Computed example of a mutant assay.
Amino acid sequence: MTVIIISLILIFIGNSLPLNGILMGVILPFITFIIGKRRSLFFIFLAWILFSLQTDKYSFNLLVIALFGFLNFLLFCYVEYDRKSIFYLVPLDIGFYLLIVYKSLYIRINIKYLIINIISFFILNYFYTSRKNKRKIDEA
């Protein structure tokens, strides 16, 4: 539960920073973690609210997060949520990040924020999968 609370705080802080780009490096791995552990949709709803606080695109963000959650749910019907699944999750995260910044693709995408997001996708997906497997070992 502490991982969930810390992640929600990081989502809020990431969206409160006055930056020129969008940081999705926390919210996408967090949604994957929630769906991978079969938790409540309440946390996804809360993450959407915290992610959309500083924007005026509530419905677009809800649509993207719902689509991302649905694709993760379908993925986890066939793939186990473990460290090997990072190779599936990071390209999915990158694709949805590019969907969020689709207007920047025509002008010029900010490479600095893309690299920051890719690194955070790797790190947080690895961290969340290790927490999931550690919890499974503790329960056994």
Rank of each mutant, 00 (worst) to 15 (best):
K57P: 00
T55P: 01
I44L: 08
I115S: 10
F70D: 07
I49E: 01
S59V: 14
F127Q: 03
Y106D: 02
K132D: 09
I94F: 15
F51Q: 05
K112V: 14
G95L: 14
N72A: 10
S130V: 11
R131D: 09
S85V: 04
T129H: 04
F68H: 02
I65D: 00
F45G: 13
L74K: 15
Y78P: 07
R135W: 10
F43R: 05
L98R: 01
L41C: 09
F51P: 00
I115L: 15
A47Q: 01
V90H: 05
R39N: 12
K103M: 09
I44V: 15
N117T: 04
Y88A: 10
D82G: 13
L75D: 06
F45S: 13
I94C: 06
L99T: 06
R131I: 11
D82S: 14
L114M: 13
Y106N: 10
F121R: 02
V90M: 04
L41G: 14
L71F: 14
S104A: 10
T129M: 08
G69L: 05
V79G: 07
F121E: 05
L74H: 13
K84Q: 13
V90Q: 04
S85K: 04
P91T: 05
L89R: 01
K112C: 11
L98N: 02
I118F: 13
I119G: 07
Y113P: 03
I109G: 07
L53K: 03
L105S: 06
I118H: 04
E80S: 15
L53T: 08
D82T: 08
I123R: 04
I100M: 09
Y128A: 02
K112N: 13
